[in-house]
């Protein structure tokens, strides 16, 4: 098997707070090949965003990566120094954040923020950096980029700002973009535009993408593969077709059933009972046990992530039968 672009092994990010240790990410394994799009799915508090930030070493204190490895083209980023990480951030791995209203500095012009991003990694003149920023804006579909570069973030709509953030992420044609719920804060129509745009750009440039989201509909439209997270762990992983069509973990099935679908018109929408457990006080064994409709005695110990293949696995003692769901389409 060839070395993947990114391999995350047993990543653990804990927050050492006064109330106790919050195990936001507690043993996450992921792998991603060149140009592949991975959907990282989970509810709020499942650790999906922290996973994304841990890869680039961007977790703020009191959070800390306490274990595991992040192998990016064979190089472990967990042990890497700040200087090495800085050389990778923005250049090889870029990030897009959830709220476009918050990711651009309100007191600096778009041009300043783009030019500095170019010049952080390449010794080019201001004029050339400006020209490249102009082209990057044009590429994400922003009209009259010259005028736009001189503007400030508050003069942009949310969708436009997210386009700018995407343009910044694409400046150095990175190998990987980690997008942390980049469309959650946007209107549905803008969401679709941005999704389409990102997908197209990633295909054009061969950039791999980790799309962090709670929205399975988005993932099914965009991703090649999916990893479902629950309480700091990956509970199921597989291709989009496998996850959507034949979920094996009861949590994944629960998520799918709580998405409205045309094929179940008139039937009340199912929801998963209970709520995400407090990460300060996780139940012993499988974290989903208290909300599961089929717990057994075995569930008091943590099941391994296992399945048919390395990249088709689930973390459950009593997986859902591999029926093919009728409303997969």
């Amino acid at each position: 098997m060839t070395e993947p672009l990114l391999r995350v092994d047993g990543l653990k990010t804990h927050f050492l707070t006064r109330a106790g240790t919050v195990k936001a990410v507690d043993g996450v394994d992921l792998r991603l090949d060149r140009g592949e799009i991975l959907g990282l799915v989970g509810e709020s508090g499942s650790g999906k965003s922290v996973t994304g930030q841990s890869i680039l070493g961007l977790v703020d204190p009191p959070g800390r990566v306490v274990g595991g490895r992040v192998l990016f083209q064979g190089e472990d980023l967990v042990g890497a120094g700040e200087k090495r990480l800085r050389a990778i951030r923005g250049r090889r791995i870029a990030m897009i954040f959830q709220d476009p209203m918050m990711t651009l500095n309100p007191v600096l012009s778009i041009g300043t923020q783009m030019v500095e991003a170019v010049r952080a990694h390449e010794a080019v003149s201001r004029a050339e950096a400006w020209e490249r920023s102009r082209r990057a804006l044009a590429r994400v579909g922003i009209a009259s980029p010259d005028e736009r570069l001189a503007s400030y973030p508050h003069q942009f709509s949310g969708g436009m700002r997210q386009r700018v953030a995407i343009a910044i992420a694409l400046l150095h044609s990175p190998d990987l973009i980690i997008a942390d719920e980049p469309t959650t804060a946007l209107d549905v129509t803008i969401q679709a535009q941005i999704l389409f745009e990102v997908q197209k750009l990633c295909h054009e440039t061969g950039t791999a993408l980790i799309w962090v989201t709670h929205d399975l509909a988005v993932v099914s439209a965009l991703a090649d593969r999916v990893a479902v997270m629950y309480a700091g762990r990956v509970v199921e992983t597989g291709t989009v077709a496998e996850i959507i069509g034949a979920p094996r973990h009861p949590y994944t099935r629960g998520l799918l059933e709580s998405v409205p679908s045309r094929n179940r018109r008139g039937v009340p929408l199912r929801s998963i009972p209970g709520m995400t457990p407090s990460v300060l006080d996780l139940p012993e064994g499988c974290a989903f046990r208290p909300r599961c409709d089929r717990p057994t005695a075995a569930c008091t110990t943590m099941p391994e992530l296992a399945g048919e293949r390395d990249d088709r696995a689930w973390r459950c003692w009593n997986p859902v039968a591999a029926e093919v769901r009728g409303d997969a389409a």
């Binding site: 930030q53 680039l56 961007l58 703020d60 800085r86 050389a87 990778i88 951030r89 923005g90 250049r91 870029a94 990030m95 954040f97 959830q98 709220d99 918050m102 990711t103 651009l104 500095n105 309100p106 500095e116 991003a117 952080a120 990694h121 953030a165 910044i168």
Partner: peptide, 17 residues
């Protein structure tokens, strides 16, 4: 703690900047 500071770090900017 603002996102734009984290985003600036994610761009690979030097701490001084």
């Amino acid at each position: 703690l603002q996102d734009y500071v984290k985003f600036a770090r994610a761009k690979g900017l030097a701490p001084a900047r």
